[in-house]
Design a protein around this nucleic acid. Structure first.
Length: 415
RNA sequence: GGGGGAGUUCCCGAGUUGGCCAAAGGGGGCAGACUGUAAAUCUGUUGUCGACGACUUCAGUGGUUCGAAUCCGCUCUCCCCCA
């Protein structure tokens, strides 16, 4: 017999909170049951944090359940205050729509949409046209402000200030759940643990208005063993869009997770079997690197496909141990006019360093290498003869490997 | 609407008897050592530039002054108490 998906999720460390464990386990064992998960289109790409939700959808989908992916184009106009200390900036309708489109596009590559495998909904369809008075008369009586204020997600904001706009978010999301129950018979909402308050609000609304059972289930947020949010890079989120985060950088992120986090990441972000993961967890010391390579390969494959993931792995081996193929190493195209300029200037011009002072510091501190030769002279210039077949490998610090590509008298596309 | 308080460099947060402030300290970032492309630890660094000096910063703006983050006026924003 196959194991109950609920127990499987539990074994893989996903589950944070559940409203009614027995009922939810039972519900999830029935093929065709629907569950929903919301995505607020706050950016034009999904990021690592969404990966957990995606994985859950994949697991449940494989178990024969029907995921409803709800695009929060309507709620996006409000901005979820959960798990935030500051107010979200207000986005234009066009931006929100664009973001939602990007989400759908990415999801279509991460989930099986064939044969209505995933139901796509968009709460703009029912939220945007709501009549204010009708709405608050309809759902308002079922909420007390007292209880809402006691909710975790709002309490955190009591000191910093919470706008009335944001205060409405919970009610909107609760209403979404009610709509999806009526429209799709959906009795279960799942989401990240920061969504707990919003989720139970919806489940209660269904009970009050429809006198029907509805449940909620949340998953652990992706955090490091010492409580830091994972999926953050120096420049922000770890995006799934290749244009916003190269496959190589994405691979490197997972290749470099803390020792203590490898097992959890494998359980939550890959489809490796628990036995296999356990054997990886037996590894000690430097051997753990093998596990990290596997983790990075698996997660990257999921998001970008096997071929690109393997290219990235190759490139990483090339960069760090000399053997391999550098094809996937991030490139930077330099033009004719860069010749003869100091490395300081070239690095800065192409955005590899934030300013010439920054570049100067890097070189002075001995962190700049050209083909593994440490550059000592602050004013050393980029010359023609250092290129090998139009390519030149440089290194900033210990880990940032960049390939300069010589593009003679061509218009360069900077990035 | 009335009363009070605050806006400092990526973040938090010193500094307000005017010069010794590019501005303490912590966090974060970056570089180096150590290492396993880990963690922890240690060291350095962290406005810009034609760089042992110069230039531009302390919400905005206009003043006072030889000289202001520090004093005065106005504006904007935020918080708190009362309504």
């Amino acid at each position: 017999m196959t194991i109950n998906v609920y127990d499987m999720l539990k074994e893989r460390d996903f589950i944070a909170q559940v409203t009614h464990e027995d009922e939810v386990r039972e519900y999830l064992s029935k093929k065709g049951s629907t569950f929903y998960i919301g995505f607020d289109p706050t950016a034009d790409s999904l990021h690592a944090g969404h990966l957990v939700q995606i994985m859950v959808m994949r697991h449940l989908q494989q178990a024969g359940l029907r995921p409803i992916a709800l695009m929060g184009e309507g709620t996006g106009h409000i901005g979820d205050p959960s798990d935030r200390t500051d107010m979200r900036s207000i986005m234009s309708s066009d931006t929100i729509r664009h973001n939602a489109d990007c989400f759908v596009e990415q999801m279509s590559r991460l989930l099986d949409f064939s044969e209505d495998g995933v139901i796509l909904e968009n709460n703009a369809n029912w939220l945007l046209s709501l009549n204010y008075v009708d709405f608050i008369r309809n759902v308002g009586p079922h909420f007390t402000v007292n209880r809402m204020l006691a909710a975790d997600c709002y309490r955190q904001r009591m000191d910093r200030g919470l706008s009335f706009l944001e205060f409405n978010y919970m009610v909107m999301q609760a209403y979404d759940f009610l709509v999806l129950f009526r429209k799709r018979g959906c009795r279960l909402q799942v989401g990240g643990d920061d969504q707990w308050s919003n989720i139970i609000a919806g489940a209660e609304l269904i009970r009050r208005k429809e006198r029907e059972a509805a449940w909620g289930l949340t998953f652990r947020l992706l955090t490091t063993s010492n409580g830091q949010k994972m999926g953050k890079t120096a420049s922000g989120a770890l995006w799934l869009d290749e244009k916003k985060c190269s496959v190589y950088d994405f691979y490197q992120y997972w290749r470099n997770v803390d020792d203590a986090d490898v097992g959890t990441c494998m359980r939550m972000l890959t489809h490796l079997s628990l036995e296999e993961i356990r054997s990886y967890e037996q590894l000690k010391g430097a051997d753990i690197n093998v596990a990290k390579e596997r983790l990075a390969l698996e997660v990257t494959s999921l998001v970008h496909g096997r071929a690109k993931a393997e290219q990235a792995a190759e490139a990483a081996r090339m960069a760090f141990s000399g053997s391999g193929n550098s094809a996937a190493i991030p490139i930077c195209i330099v033009s004719e006019e860069d010749r003869g300029n100091t490395y300081m200037d070239v690095l800065t011009k192409h955005g590899l360093t934030s300013s010439k002072s920054d570049a100067r510091r890097l070189i002075q501190q001995g962190g700049f290498y050209v083909e593994e030769r440490q550059v000592q002279d602050l004013f050393e210039t980029l010359s023609d003869d250092v290129f090998d077949k139009g390519e030149l490998l440089i290194r900033l610090g210990k880990k940032r490997h960049i390939k300069l590509i010589s593009k003679d008298s061509q218009v360069t596309t900077l990035d």
